[in-house]
Simulated assay, not measured.
Amino acid sequence: MTDEIASGQRATEHLPWGAVWGQDAAVRTLQAATADAGGMTHAWLITGPPGSGRSTLAHAFAAALIAEPTDHAAMRQVLAGSHPDLTALRTERVIITIDEARRLVERAAFSPSLGRYRVIVVEDADRMTERTSNVLLKSLEEPPERTVWVLCAPSDADLLPTIRSRVRTLRLREPEVADVAALVSSRTGASAQIAEQAARHAQRHIGMAQRLATDDAARERRDETLRGVLAVRGVGDAVRVAGRIVELATDDAKALTAERDAQERAQMLRTIGVAEGQAVPPAVRGQLSALEDDQKRRATRSLRDGIDRVLTDLQSVYRDVIMLQFGREEGLVNVELAPDMRALATSWEPRRTLAVLDRIQHTRRSLEQNAAPLLAVESMLVTVATGRVP
Rank of each mutant, 00 (worst) to 15 (best):
E4Q: 13
A6M: 01
A11D: 12
T12D: 15
W17L: 05
W21K: 09
G22F: 03
D24P: 01
R28L: 05
A32I: 00
A37F: 03
G38Q: 13
G39F: 04
T41L: 12
P50Y: 08
R54L: 08
A60D: 12
A63R: 10
A74M: 14
A74R: 13
L86R: 01
I95H: 14
I98A: 14
D99G: 11
V105M: 10
F110N: 13
F110H: 14
P112K: 07
L114S: 08
Y117N: 06
Y117Q: 15
V122E: 13
E130N: 12
E130Y: 05
E130R: 13
P143K: 09
R146H: 15
W149P: 10
P154H: 11
L159R: 05
T162E: 13
R166G: 07
V167L: 12
R168L: 10
L170M: 11
E174R: 15
P175D: 11
A178M: 06
A182V: 02
A182I: 01
T188M: 10
A190L: 08
A192P: 10
Q193V: 11
E196H: 12
R200E: 10
G207M: 08
A209H: 07
T214D: 13
E220F: 02
R221A: 01
E224T: 14
R227Q: 13
G228K: 06
V229T: 03
R233E: 13
G234C: 08
G236C: 01
A238M: 08
G243L: 09
R244N: 11
D251K: 07
D252F: 12
L256G: 05
D261F: 08
R265H: 14
T271P: 00
T271R: 15
G273P: 08
G277L: 05
Q287Y: 01
E292V: 02
E292L: 05
D294Q: 14
R297F: 05
R304L: 15
R309V: 10
R309S: 05
L311I: 04
L314N: 03
Q315V: 04
I322F: 12
F326C: 05
E330H: 10
N334D: 08
L337R: 03
M341L: 07
R342V: 05
T363H: 04
S366V: 00
Q369D: 12
N370P: 01
N370L: 02
L374A: 12
E378H: 01
M380V: 03
R388E: 15
V389N: 08
